[in-house]
């Protein structure tokens, strides 16, 4: 079942399946966060916003709203 990245907790590893926003996709892609990649939820600020994830040792910070647009599956 597909769910979004914001639902996962720190330490979870997920596979990126789809991104529901074209602009966001390009931003994520250019930082190496590509569909099919494994994402590790590294850290969450209070109230779960923003979030730090890592993709192959690149650390990326994004907002909860952005994470909600990222469809993922547990890996």
């Amino acid at each position: 079942m597909k769910s979004n990245l914001a639902d996962y907790k720190v330490g979870d590893r997920v596979i990126l399946k789809n991104v529901l926003d074209a602009q966001l996709t390009i931003q994520l892609y250019s930082m190496g966060c590509v569909v099919g990649e494994e994402i590790l939820v590294e850290r969450k600020a209070p109230f779960g916003d923003p979030i730090i994830i890592s993709v192959e040792d690149s650390f990326i910070s994004l907002r909860k709203d952005d994470a909600k647009k990222m469809e993922v599956e547990l890996s």
Partner: peptide, 8 residues
């Protein structure tokens, strides 16, 4: 739309 996607 406001994004905050930033490399650390």
């Amino acid at each position: 739309r406001s994004h905050f996607v930033m490399e650390l």
